[in-house]
């Protein structure tokens, strides 16, 4: 098993955090993982992305030329990555602000209005965690308790209220995806 995922969006949407928390939980599940962020001038001016490889064997290239999953949090990311995703792969998109849809019919779409859902919860900043809830459920690579434990470790010293909000956001995204 070798699965590659690209998380992409505006800087400030917590895209690198999504990738890092996913990689962290996959590590704790016992998988080989690599995390490769975009860096330097390419992240100035607002876009960010990172690539996560998860495998049950040694990972050679941390780059994804044909990712199995792509999570797009804004429209430019959809345009950038829609042709990279592998045939039969899944695109997760933030339908609150991404109005266009990929023209490809050979990939699955999982549209999550995570921006609106976050606003309803009173904090737009948890949109990424809501999306992670949907991602974790749909992909099934990492169990939700392992993922939530990673989030707890990463957030470390943050306040209890923040942890509770994250938990709530994650559950909302998780429940949004139907079995």
């Amino acid at each position: 098993m070798m699965l590659k995922t690209i998380f992409s969006g505006f800087g400030g949407q917590g895209v690198l955090m999504m990738g890092y928390s996913f990689a962290h939980s996959a590590m704790n599940k016992g998988y080989h993982v690599t995390y490769l962020p975009s860096y330097g001038a390419e992240v100035r001016g607002g876009t960010a992305n990172c690539t996560i490889a998860v495998a049950d064997e040694e990972i050679t290239s941390p780059v994804a030329s044909e990712p199995d999953y792509v999570v797009v949090m804004n429209s430019p990311s959809l345009i950038t990555f829609q042709n990279k995703i592998t045939c039969g792969g899944t695109m997760f998109l933030n339908s609150s602000i991404v109005e266009i849809r990929p023209s490809r019919k050979d990939i699955k779409i999982c549209a999550v209005p995570c921006g609106d859902m976050a606003r309803e919860m009173g904090n737009i900043r948890v949109a990424n965690i809501i999306m992670m809830g949907a991602f974790i459920k749909k992909t099934g690579i990492v169990p939700s308790d392992v993922y939530l434990k990673s989030i707890g470790t990463i957030m470390g010293g943050k306040k209890k209220s923040v942890a509770e909000l994250n938990q709530k956001a994650f559950t909302a995204g998780y429940d949004f995806v139907k079995d």
């Binding site: 590590m27 995390y35 941390p62």
Partner: peptide, 10 residues
């Protein structure tokens, strides 16, 4: 190289 510097692994 930049890849080794930027990438994360356990």
């Amino acid at each position: 190289d930049g890849m080794m510097g930027q990438m994360m692994e356990p």
